[in-house]
C-alpha cells in the first residue's frame, strides 16, 4: 500500500531530473549515429550490444550509489513517518531502476521504430539492458548501505564495474591460456555464470546468432547448451544475480541504524 505511494512520488521526482533525460538522449544519439553511418538494423544491434554491456553497468552502479547517498536525510525523514522500512526500500529501488530502464528503452527504441523495425528485433537488447540496470542498481544499493563513507562506496562501485566489464575477461583469457592442455568447457561455463556482464553478452549473442563475435565463452555456451537452453540458463543466472544483491541490500536496510 505505502510502497506504491512511495514509488509514485519517487518517480514524480526523478522523471523531472535532467540526468534521466540526458541518459535517454545518450542512447538515442548513439543508436541514431550508428544508423547514420550506414548500418542496417542487425549491424546497429551488434554495435549497440557493446555499448549496452559497458555503459549500463557503469551508469547504474554509480547513479544508484550516489542516489542512495544523497537520499540519506530524506530516508530518515520518511522513516519518521508511519512507513514500513521494506516499503521504503522497494520504493527507493524502483525510483532508480524504473527511470533508468525507461530512459534506456525509449532512447534505443525510437531510432529503430522510426525506420519501421519491429519491436521484436530489439526485444532481447532491451531485456538484457533492463536486467543489467536492475542488477547493478541492486549492487549499488548494497554498497551504499555497507559503506558509510561515500568516497569509499563510489570507489568500490567503480572497481566493481571495471572488474566485471574488463578485468574478469582478462582473467578468463589468462586461465584459458595457462591451462590450454586441459578440457576447459565446464570451468569456463561456470566462470561466465559468475559475471552478470558475461551472462548479458551470452544472452545477446545466442539470440542474435552472431557467432563470429561470440568469443570463447559464448561459443562454448552454445555448443554446450544449444540456443534455447543457453538462453534460459543465462536468464536464470541473471535473475539470481538480481535477487542476491537485492536481498542483501534489503536486509542491510532493515537492520541499519540511520
Amino acid at each position: 500500500m505505502s510502497t506504491t505511494k512511495i514509488i509514485k512520488y519517487q518517480l514524480q521526482d526523478v522523471f523531472r531530473s535532467k540526468w534521466v533525460w540526458a541518459y535517454a538522449l545518450f542512447f538515442f544519439a548513439v543508436t541514431e549515429a550508428l544508423f547514420q553511418f550506414g548500418g542496417d538494423g542487425d549491424r546497429v544491434i551488434t554495435s549497440m550490444m557493446n555499448v549496452v554491456l559497458l555503459v549500463i553497468p557503469l551508469i547504474s552502479i554509480v547513479l544508484g550509489a550516489m542516489y542512495l547517498y544523497n537520499s540519506r536525510e530524506y530516508i530518515e525523514l520518511l522513516l519518521c513517518q508511519p512507513v514500513k522500512r521494506s516499503s521504503l526500500f522497494f520504493g527507493l529501488f524502483s525510483g532508480v531502476t524504473v527511470p533508468l530502464s525507461v530512459a534506456f528503452t525509449v532512447g534505443v527504441a525510437v531510432p529503430f521504430l522510426m525506420r519501421g523495425s519491429e519491436i521484436g528485433s530489439i526485444l532481447f537488447l532491451v531485456i538484457t539492458g533492463i536486467l543489467l540496470t536492475v542488477i547493478f542498481v541492486a549492487m549499488a544499493f548494497g554498497l551504499a548501505l555497507s559503506f558509510e563513507d561515500r568516497i569509499k562506496g563510489l570507489g568500490i562501485a567503480l572497481i566493481l564495474w571495471l572488474f566485471f566489464t574488463v578485468i574478469y575477461d582478462g582473467i578468463i583469457l589468462l586461465i584459458i591460456y595457462s591451462f590450454s592442455d586441459y578440457p576447459l568447457q565446464q570451468p569456463v561455463i561456470i566462470l561466465s555464470m559468475l559475471n552478470p556482464v558475461d551472462l548479458g553478452r551470452i544472452l545477446l549473442l545466442l539470440n542474435y546468432d552472431i557467432s563470429a563475435l561470440m568469443g570463447f565463452t559464448g561459443a562454448v555456451f552454445q555448443r554446450f547448451f544449444g540456443s534455447l537452453a543457453g538462453q534460459s540458463i543465462s536468464i536464470t543466472a541473471m535473475l539470481l544475480w538480481l535477487a542476491i544483491p537485492f536481498w542483501l541490500g534489503r536486509r542491510a536496510f532493515l537492520r541499519r541504524n540511520f
Binding site: Y9, Q10, Q12, D13, V14, R16, S17, S71, E73, Y74, E76, L77, C80
Partner: peptide, 14 residues
C-alpha cells in the same frame, strides 16, 4: 509523532 530534523531534505524536484 511529528519530527522536525535539524536539516530537512525532500525530493528536490517536487
Amino acid at each position: 509523532i511529528g519530527y522536525m530534523p535539524q536539516q530537512a531534505r525532500y525530493p528536490e524536484n517536487l
